[in-house]
């Protein structure tokens, strides 16, 4: 092979490369899109879970809204208070306020409380059991206890108690709503953490038929209605709290409930499950 061939091929390749490089350089100039440099910086500071609790499509979507000033750093409930401060400092805005919300379960019928009509031996997920006679549960509105919510929670904020109920850790919950979507019985709601009064039942049966299937069901006895007029009303076989009139709420309403369907929550739901935690720790 003579050296001329070698040089020629190197020259051609080099020339073609140079030509394309020039094209790319021109295209870069021509199609340049200016991006707020803060966007990249903010994106780096966000948690990156893409949980969607803020209501925007992922952390990047939130960062874009943040940079344009359409939302405040406080809307991200996953970041710690310090991290929010840092983001606010970078952006030169106020941290803002957002009501802290947590996921609450509208059922308290665990293994000890709810009646089972039949044994379920199929696929061990709530979604599958819901299609087969509610997994044999006496109350077909209630929690199936197979932990679909605990599996989808990316923050490990939900664990299944020995009683077969999901326990939400209020400190870890970011109110992203994944459990709300996962529950085939629609038992999860996201409610402000400062509200303590909750009807943890979805059973629409009245009176004895209700308590026949679950010890802690709302049996529409109307005691709560009499005790806190305007705040709690019985609607379609269930006590309903009017959260617009929440200023009337007090632990008394929960104390009046004979079955335990209405509770006054402080911190974790199902406090009896805490015993299990203590046991595990010791």
């Amino acid at each position: 092979m003579n050296p001329g061939d070698f040089l020629l091929s190197a020259g051609i390749l080099g020339g073609v490369g140079l030509g394309f490089a020039l094209l790319i350089a021109l295209a870069h100039r021509r199609f340049y899109v200016w991006e707020d440099p803060r966007l990249e910086a903010v994106s780096q500071m966000l948690p990156g879970n893409n949980c969607g609790a803020c209501g925007f499509p992922g952390c990047r979507g939130f960062a874009e809204e943040l940079v344009t000033g359409k939302t405040s750093p406080a809307t991200c409930t996953v970041m710690s208070a310090d991290q929010r401060e840092e983001v606010a400092e970078l952006m030169g805005v106020e941290v803002g306020t957002a009501a802290l919300r947590v996921a609450r379960l509208l059922c308290a019928g665990g293994r000890d409380e709810a009646v089972r009509r039949a044994e379920y031996v199929g696929l061990q997920t709530c979604a599958a059991a819901a299609a087969v006679s509610a997994g044999g549960r006496g109350c077909t509105w209630g929690c199936l206890g197979l932990g679909d919510c605990a599996r989808v929670c990316i923050f490990d904020a939900i664990w299944m108690s020995d009683n077969g109920l999901p326990v939400v850790e209020p400190e870890l919950c970011t109110a992203c709503g994944d459990c709300v979507e996962a529950c085939p019985k629609d038992l999860f709601i996201l409610m402000p953490a400062e509200q303590n009064l909750l009807v943890q039942c979805r059973n629409l049966l009245d009176g004895e038929p209700a308590t026949d299937v679950c010890r802690v069901a709302c049996n529409t006895c109307r005691r709560c209605e009499a005790d806190a007029p305007g705040l709690i009303t019985i609607r379609d076989g269930l006590a309903v709290i009017d959260y617009d009139r929440y200023d009337l709420a007090s632990p008394a309403a929960a104390a009046r409930c004979p079955t335990g369907a209405i509770v006054w929550l402080e911190g974790r739901q199902f406090p009896e499950a805490s015993i299990q935690l203590e046991k595990a720790a010791s």
Partner: peptide
């Protein structure tokens, strides 16, 4: 593998997500 049961559950979930 309980395939059809998986599909029953998936169909229910798809319906729910479409409604939501």
């Amino acid at each position: 593998i309980p395939l059809s049961q998986l599909f029953v559950a998936a169909k229910a979930q798809v319906r729910k997500l479409k409604v939501a």
